[in-house]
Write a protein that binds this DNA or RNA. Sequence first.
DNA 1: GAGACATATCAAAACCTCCGCACATAACAG
DNA 2: CTGTTATGTGCGGAGGTTTTGATATGTCTC
Lengths: 118, 118
Amino acid sequence: MSHNKYSCDCNIVHREAVEQVIKCLPADEVLARVAEFFKILGDPTRTKIICTLLEGEMCVCDIANVLGMTKSAVSHQLGMLRRADLVAFRREGKNVFYSLSDGHVRGMIESGLEHVHQ
Amino acid sequence: MSHNKYSCDCNIVHREAVEQVIKCLPADEVLARVAEFFKILGDPTRTKIICTLLEGEMCVCDIANVLGMTKSAVSHQLGMLRRADLVAFRREGKNVFYSLSDGHVRGMIESGLEHVHQ
DNA sequence: GAGACATATCAAAACCTCCGCACATAACAG
DNA sequence: CTGTTATGTGCGGAGGTTTTGATATGTCTC
Protein backbone atom coordinates (compact mmCIF):
# COMPACT_ATOMS: atom_id res chain seq x y z
CA MET A 1 0.00 0.00 0.00
CA SER A 2 1.48 3.28 -1.16
CA HIS A 3 1.76 6.45 0.90
CA ASN A 4 0.75 8.65 -2.02
CA LYS A 5 -2.53 7.04 -2.79
CA TYR A 6 -5.79 6.79 -0.91
CA SER A 7 -6.91 3.21 -1.18
CA CYS A 8 -10.01 3.56 1.01
CA ASP A 9 -10.32 -0.16 1.36
CA CYS A 10 -12.20 0.62 4.51
CA ASN A 11 -10.86 -2.45 6.23
CA ILE A 12 -7.33 -1.18 5.66
CA VAL A 13 -7.61 2.58 5.39
CA HIS A 14 -4.79 4.98 4.66
CA ARG A 15 -3.88 4.80 8.26
CA GLU A 16 -1.29 7.54 8.42
CA ALA A 17 -3.51 10.24 6.92
CA VAL A 18 -6.29 9.26 9.28
CA GLU A 19 -4.04 9.21 12.31
CA GLN A 20 -2.51 12.54 11.34
CA VAL A 21 -5.95 14.15 11.22
CA ILE A 22 -6.98 12.53 14.48
CA LYS A 23 -3.89 14.05 16.09
CA CYS A 24 -4.76 17.52 14.77
CA LEU A 25 -8.42 17.41 15.78
CA PRO A 26 -9.55 19.35 18.84
CA ALA A 27 -10.56 17.19 21.79
CA ASP A 28 -14.04 15.69 21.69
CA GLU A 29 -15.03 17.82 24.66
CA VAL A 30 -14.02 20.99 22.80
CA LEU A 31 -15.87 19.89 19.67
CA ALA A 32 -18.93 19.16 21.76
CA ARG A 33 -18.82 22.66 23.23
CA VAL A 34 -18.47 24.22 19.78
CA ALA A 35 -21.36 22.16 18.44
CA GLU A 36 -23.44 23.08 21.46
CA PHE A 37 -22.73 26.76 20.86
CA PHE A 38 -23.86 26.55 17.24
CA LYS A 39 -26.86 24.44 18.19
CA ILE A 40 -28.01 27.17 20.52
CA LEU A 41 -27.84 29.66 17.66
CA GLY A 42 -29.47 27.17 15.31
CA ASP A 43 -33.10 27.63 16.27
CA PRO A 44 -35.28 30.24 14.56
CA THR A 45 -36.84 31.38 17.83
CA ARG A 46 -33.48 31.92 19.47
CA THR A 47 -32.04 33.54 16.35
CA LYS A 48 -34.94 35.95 16.39
CA ILE A 49 -34.48 36.68 20.07
CA ILE A 50 -30.81 37.45 19.52
CA CYS A 51 -31.60 39.69 16.55
CA THR A 52 -34.13 41.45 18.74
CA LEU A 53 -31.48 42.05 21.38
CA LEU A 54 -29.10 43.49 18.76
CA GLU A 55 -31.23 46.64 19.11
CA GLY A 56 -30.76 46.80 22.86
CA GLU A 57 -31.99 45.23 26.10
CA MET A 58 -35.63 44.21 26.41
CA CYS A 59 -37.91 42.58 28.98
CA VAL A 60 -39.43 39.12 28.55
CA CYS A 61 -42.93 40.38 27.95
CA ASP A 62 -41.86 42.69 25.14
CA ILE A 63 -39.75 39.99 23.56
CA ALA A 64 -42.79 37.71 23.62
CA ASN A 65 -44.74 40.39 21.80
CA VAL A 66 -42.02 40.90 19.21
CA LEU A 67 -41.98 37.16 18.48
CA GLY A 68 -45.75 36.65 18.77
CA MET A 69 -45.23 33.74 21.19
CA THR A 70 -46.22 32.91 24.74
CA LYS A 71 -44.08 34.23 27.57
CA SER A 72 -43.53 30.66 28.68
CA ALA A 73 -41.98 29.61 25.39
CA VAL A 74 -39.85 32.74 25.27
CA SER A 75 -38.76 32.33 28.87
CA HIS A 76 -37.71 28.79 28.14
CA GLN A 77 -35.51 29.88 25.24
CA LEU A 78 -34.12 32.80 27.23
CA GLY A 79 -33.20 30.35 29.97
CA MET A 80 -31.30 28.30 27.45
CA LEU A 81 -29.50 31.37 26.11
CA ARG A 82 -28.74 32.45 29.66
CA ARG A 83 -27.31 29.09 30.73
CA ALA A 84 -25.10 29.16 27.64
CA ASP A 85 -23.92 32.67 28.58
CA LEU A 86 -25.11 34.15 25.31
CA VAL A 87 -27.30 36.70 27.05
CA ALA A 88 -27.06 38.71 30.25
CA PHE A 89 -30.00 39.78 32.37
CA ARG A 90 -30.79 42.23 35.11
CA ARG A 91 -33.89 42.62 37.19
CA GLU A 92 -35.58 45.99 37.48
CA GLY A 93 -38.59 45.75 39.72
CA LYS A 94 -40.92 43.17 38.36
CA ASN A 95 -39.28 43.07 34.95
CA VAL A 96 -36.20 41.18 33.85
CA PHE A 97 -34.26 42.80 31.05
CA TYR A 98 -32.19 40.65 28.73
CA SER A 99 -29.28 41.78 26.56
CA LEU A 100 -26.47 40.21 24.55
CA SER A 101 -23.69 39.12 26.89
CA ASP A 102 -20.79 40.20 24.69
CA GLY A 103 -19.70 41.29 21.25
CA HIS A 104 -18.78 37.77 20.24
CA VAL A 105 -22.39 36.71 19.88
CA ARG A 106 -23.21 39.86 17.97
CA GLY A 107 -20.33 39.23 15.57
CA MET A 108 -21.36 35.64 15.05
CA ILE A 109 -24.96 36.48 14.22
CA GLU A 110 -23.88 39.26 11.91
CA SER A 111 -21.54 36.85 10.13
CA GLY A 112 -24.42 34.44 9.76
CA LEU A 113 -26.65 37.12 8.27
CA GLU A 114 -23.85 38.06 5.90
CA HIS A 115 -23.36 34.46 4.85
CA VAL A 116 -27.05 34.12 4.05
CA HIS A 117 -27.17 37.34 2.06
CA GLN A 118 -24.69 36.23 -0.55
CA MET B 1 -48.24 45.49 10.18
CA SER B 2 -48.15 41.85 9.16
CA HIS B 3 -47.22 40.73 12.65
CA ASN B 4 -49.95 39.04 14.63
CA LYS B 5 -50.03 40.92 17.90
CA TYR B 6 -52.78 38.75 19.32
CA SER B 7 -50.86 35.51 19.43
CA CYS B 8 -49.08 36.61 22.58
CA ASP B 9 -50.64 36.11 25.99
CA CYS B 10 -49.59 39.35 27.67
CA ASN B 11 -49.65 43.11 27.25
CA ILE B 12 -46.91 45.10 25.65
CA VAL B 13 -44.85 46.94 28.23
CA HIS B 14 -42.98 49.31 25.93
CA ARG B 15 -45.08 49.56 22.80
CA GLU B 16 -42.77 51.82 20.83
CA ALA B 17 -39.70 49.69 21.50
CA VAL B 18 -41.59 46.60 20.38
CA GLU B 19 -42.80 48.12 17.17
CA GLN B 20 -39.40 49.62 16.43
CA VAL B 21 -37.69 46.24 16.83
CA ILE B 22 -40.27 44.50 14.67
CA LYS B 23 -39.51 47.01 11.93
CA CYS B 24 -35.75 46.43 12.23
CA LEU B 25 -35.83 42.63 12.32
CA PRO B 26 -34.68 40.72 9.24
CA ALA B 27 -37.44 38.90 7.40
CA ASP B 28 -38.56 35.58 8.85
CA GLU B 29 -37.25 33.79 5.79
CA VAL B 30 -33.79 35.30 6.32
CA LEU B 31 -33.83 34.41 10.00
CA ALA B 32 -34.85 30.86 9.12
CA ARG B 33 -31.91 30.55 6.74
CA VAL B 34 -29.49 31.87 9.37
CA ALA B 35 -30.86 29.47 11.96
CA GLU B 36 -30.62 26.62 9.47
CA PHE B 37 -27.00 27.47 8.80
CA PHE B 38 -26.13 27.40 12.51
CA LYS B 39 -28.18 24.28 13.04
CA ILE B 40 -26.09 22.47 10.43
CA LEU B 41 -22.94 23.44 12.34
CA GLY B 42 -24.59 22.54 15.65
CA ASP B 43 -24.04 18.80 15.67
CA PRO B 44 -20.89 17.20 17.09
CA THR B 45 -20.56 14.78 14.19
CA ARG B 46 -20.79 17.52 11.59
CA THR B 47 -18.48 19.79 13.59
CA LYS B 48 -15.95 17.00 13.67
CA ILE B 49 -16.29 16.39 9.95
CA ILE B 50 -15.70 20.06 9.23
CA CYS B 51 -12.67 20.15 11.53
CA THR B 52 -11.37 17.10 9.73
CA LEU B 53 -11.73 18.87 6.39
CA LEU B 54 -9.82 21.88 7.74
CA GLU B 55 -6.73 19.73 7.13
CA GLY B 56 -7.63 19.11 3.49
CA GLU B 57 -9.90 17.01 1.32
CA MET B 58 -10.68 13.46 2.33
CA CYS B 59 -12.77 10.56 1.08
CA VAL B 60 -15.84 9.25 2.88
CA CYS B 61 -14.19 6.08 4.06
CA ASP B 62 -11.28 7.88 5.70
CA ILE B 63 -13.63 10.37 7.31
CA ALA B 64 -15.60 7.45 8.72
CA ASN B 65 -12.40 6.06 10.18
CA VAL B 66 -11.42 9.41 11.68
CA LEU B 67 -14.80 9.67 13.36
CA GLY B 68 -15.06 5.98 14.27
CA MET B 69 -18.55 5.79 12.79
CA THR B 70 -20.22 3.80 10.06
CA LYS B 71 -19.90 5.04 6.50
CA SER B 72 -23.67 5.31 6.39
CA ALA B 73 -23.83 7.73 9.28
CA VAL B 74 -21.02 9.80 7.81
CA SER B 75 -22.63 9.79 4.38
CA HIS B 76 -25.90 11.03 5.87
CA GLN B 77 -24.14 13.97 7.49
CA LEU B 78 -22.03 14.69 4.43
CA GLY B 79 -25.21 14.77 2.38
CA MET B 80 -26.64 17.35 4.72
CA LEU B 81 -23.46 19.45 4.56
CA ARG B 82 -23.46 19.10 0.78
CA ARG B 83 -27.10 20.17 0.36
CA ALA B 84 -26.36 23.21 2.54
CA ASP B 85 -23.35 24.04 0.34
CA LEU B 86 -20.95 23.86 3.26
CA VAL B 87 -18.77 21.26 1.55
CA ALA B 88 -17.72 20.59 -2.02
CA PHE B 89 -17.04 17.16 -3.46
CA ARG B 90 -15.40 15.59 -6.44
CA ARG B 91 -15.42 12.02 -7.60
CA GLU B 92 -12.17 10.28 -8.41
CA GLY B 93 -12.87 6.78 -9.60
CA LYS B 94 -14.78 4.96 -6.91
CA ASN B 95 -13.93 7.52 -4.26
CA VAL B 96 -15.64 10.80 -3.50
CA PHE B 97 -13.45 13.45 -1.92
CA TYR B 98 -15.02 16.11 0.25
CA SER B 99 -13.60 19.51 1.10
CA LEU B 100 -14.79 22.78 2.64
CA SER B 101 -16.69 24.78 0.04
CA ASP B 102 -15.26 28.17 0.95
CA GLY B 103 -13.39 30.21 3.53
CA HIS B 104 -16.56 31.36 5.20
CA VAL B 105 -17.20 28.01 6.82
CA ARG B 106 -13.60 27.78 7.92
CA GLY B 107 -13.80 31.22 9.50
CA MET B 108 -17.01 30.39 11.27
CA ILE B 109 -15.68 27.17 12.77
CA GLU B 110 -12.48 28.87 13.84
CA SER B 111 -14.50 31.62 15.51
CA GLY B 112 -16.49 28.95 17.30
CA LEU B 113 -13.33 27.23 18.53
CA GLU B 114 -12.00 30.58 19.68
CA HIS B 115 -15.22 31.36 21.52
CA VAL B 116 -15.03 28.06 23.37
CA HIS B 117 -11.39 28.46 24.33
CA GLN B 118 -11.94 31.54 26.44
C1' DG C 1 -49.53 40.64 55.83
C1' DA C 2 -52.77 40.12 50.92
C1' DG C 3 -53.16 40.66 46.13
C1' DA C 4 -51.37 41.77 41.51
C1' DC C 5 -48.03 41.18 38.18
C1' DA C 6 -43.63 39.34 35.74
C1' DT C 7 -40.98 35.53 35.13
C1' DA C 8 -39.41 30.63 35.87
C1' DT C 9 -40.19 25.86 35.90
C1' DC C 10 -42.80 21.41 35.57
C1' DA C 11 -45.10 17.92 32.83
C1' DA C 12 -46.68 16.03 28.66
C1' DA C 13 -47.71 15.92 23.81
C1' DA C 14 -46.26 16.75 19.23
C1' DC C 15 -42.55 16.97 16.64
C1' DC C 16 -37.76 16.38 14.99
C1' DT C 17 -33.01 14.28 14.51
C1' DC C 18 -29.41 10.93 14.29
C1' DC C 19 -27.90 6.60 13.18
C1' DG C 20 -27.79 1.79 11.62
C1' DC C 21 -29.80 -1.61 8.62
C1' DA C 22 -30.73 -3.02 4.13
C1' DC C 23 -30.71 -2.06 -0.34
C1' DA C 24 -29.64 1.00 -4.46
C1' DT C 25 -26.36 3.22 -7.37
C1' DA C 26 -21.78 4.15 -9.43
C1' DA C 27 -17.23 2.93 -11.03
C1' DC C 28 -14.06 -0.30 -12.12
C1' DA C 29 -11.60 -5.05 -12.89
C1' DG C 30 -11.72 -9.13 -15.22
C1' DC D 1 -21.73 -9.50 -18.84
C1' DT D 2 -20.45 -10.71 -13.20
C1' DG D 3 -18.33 -9.47 -8.96
C1' DT D 4 -16.21 -6.17 -5.87
C1' DT D 5 -15.69 -1.84 -3.73
C1' DA D 6 -17.17 3.01 -2.45
C1' DT D 7 -20.81 5.82 -1.63
C1' DG D 8 -25.88 7.28 -1.39
C1' DT D 9 -30.56 6.79 0.53
C1' DG D 10 -35.46 5.14 2.39
C1' DC D 11 -37.06 3.45 6.57
C1' DG D 12 -37.78 3.07 11.43
C1' DG D 13 -36.73 3.29 16.36
C1' DA D 14 -34.44 5.47 20.28
C1' DG D 15 -33.74 9.62 22.12
C1' DG D 16 -33.91 14.65 22.11
C1' DT D 17 -36.35 19.29 21.40
C1' DT D 18 -40.06 22.79 21.33
C1' DT D 19 -44.15 24.17 22.70
C1' DT D 20 -48.08 24.98 25.86
C1' DG D 21 -51.01 25.19 30.20
C1' DA D 22 -50.57 24.70 34.96
C1' DT D 23 -48.08 25.75 38.76
C1' DA D 24 -44.28 27.86 41.51
C1' DT D 25 -41.25 31.66 42.63
C1' DG D 26 -40.02 36.34 43.04
C1' DT D 27 -41.17 41.41 43.43
C1' DC D 28 -43.95 45.22 43.87
C1' DT D 29 -47.90 48.09 45.95
C1' DC D 30 -51.08 48.71 49.29
